[in-house]
Design a protein around this nucleic acid. Structure first.
Lengths: 264, 264
DNA sequence: TAGTGGTCTAGACCACAAT
DNA sequence: TTGTGGTCTAGACCACTAC
């Protein structure tokens, strides 16, 4: 317990002072990555504060990705394992999905689970795919694991008519299983030439916190991705990524003045 | 006070039940956007819970962007004003900065404050600009307002040698004030052809919460952007954006197999 | 069995705004 | 003045984990 005293008796809230003390102790290396950090009870004793105060301090560091609190086990320093998601890898000719390459770059073993079924398009998806409501679409639910831990989940939608009876009908089966969307459609002669991704961010919902192992207070990225070929939507997906262990890297050319705008 | 009873007496934590009740009341339109929502004290009375429990319920909705709690004033439903940041607009030939166009699209008046000075490059910036430490760089601090409210802040760095004595030396002065980076450098014959943005996300730090008017529990996007010309870094910036009122839209072509990789 | 964090109660004082 | 949310105390019970 080498937490420093709280000096600054200014008007600062106590929980912020404690959070600052703990943060600098971690930065100084007093608590090595993966190691145990004083938990609620320890902080209550150390500083003579109530549980609420201790928890507020820990919640602040937890949201910032400094620590991770495991219910009934303890509180630990987060190692800085940082995966980078690289949509630039949506390039043609890559055999494996972009995710697999990203994970290997980080030195992690990658696994992908997928499960497909044909469903009727709801309004939102129908609009994104430019089809009418109730059109049959192939819905595929993915779960991506790196180093044994889940790091990404997504739900993909493709108009069924475009792939029915082709070798890529079921994304998780056959010769093209595990390939990225661009490579899969290349296999049936559909040349995907554009992607658009809308990035937002929010706390985990429903079972996302459990499924993706999102620590308390941390948020997830939500990406709405649509692939198009000559302006026509080919596939759209909702991608959920825990933001505490991922960053998103976008790298692309600056279009010239005379380029035509593309669909949103 | 038309909050429903809590039916589900299952093992669910009370604060989650209250949050769910309040959320559905908002979704159902019981509390119109901008209107007042039951605060901590009201929830304590309505459901007979302690302040901590009430606050946890409100914190959940606040982090999700449903409500905004203004200290000592009250708790209010967030209107869904959604700005879209569109780096696709880094196109050549646009007179005004991309931000201004984004804000106008949302029907808001845009203002930009900027302040420049020459400083010595610290290690991180020096690396991103491929210059040595202590090289003089022009640092510009921006603050962007839409409809009178701050919605974006950034710090930009450019090697001073490249712009010293040119009409674009001070980004906020002269004929090219208010132009985007691409247009400014076009003015001195430097053709920026590529941009890379790394997106992360975290709670607001220091004065960011106040400066950008980030509600309690909400997070900000942090973008590290670098413009390059023929692979050589021209400008790099750290951009901070409140994520509760912004989404990021990336739209770009899929490179072909034989394209060369670009610098990270 | 001892320790952990998760949840919750029942109070309290404060500064500030009056959406 | 009244009501608001911000902060805090001092307890409590629980389920689960680690040893």
């Amino acid at each position: 317990m080498d937490l420093p005293e709280l000096e600054s008796a200014r008007g600062w809230p106590v929980h912020q002072q404690i959070a600052a003390a703990l943060r600098s102790a971690i930065d100084a290396g007093s608590y090595p990555p993966g190691g145990r950090v004083p938990g609620e009870n320890a902080i209550m004793k150390r500083y003579g504060v109530a549980r609420w105060t201790a928890r507020q301090a820990l919640a602040e560091l937890s949201a910032a990705g400094y620590i991770r609190t495991v219910p009934k086990v303890g509180t630990f320093v987060c190692g800085e394992q940082h995966l980078v998601r690289t949509p630039r890898r949506y390039r043609r000719g890559t055999r494996s999905a972009p995710f697999v390459t990203d994970a290997r770059d980080a030195g992690l073993r990658a696994e992908v689970e997928a499960r497909s079924e044909v469903v009727s398009a709801l309004a939102g998806i129908a609009e994104r795919l430019s089809v009418s409501v109730d059109t049959p679409v192939m819905r595929t639910q993915y779960r991506f694991l790196a180093g044994g831990r889940p790091v990404q989940a997504s739900v993909s939608y493709e108009p069924h008519a475009a792939i029915a009876g082709t070798p890529i009908e079921y994304p998780e089966r056959g010769e093209h299983a595990g390939a990225g969307v661009v490579a899969r459609y290349d296999a049936i002669g559909v040349h995907i030439d554009h992607v658009s991704e809308e990035v937002t961010q929010r706390p985990p919902r429903g079972t996302e916190a459990d499924d993706l192992d999102v620590p308390r207070g941390a948020h997830v990225f939500l990406i709405h991705r649509t692939f198009t070929s000559k302006g026509r939507p080919i596939e759209t997906a909702d991608i959920v990524i825990p933001s505490d262990r991922y960053s998103l890297l976008y790298s692309f050319p600056i279009p010239d003045e005379d380029d035509e705008p593309t669909a949103t």
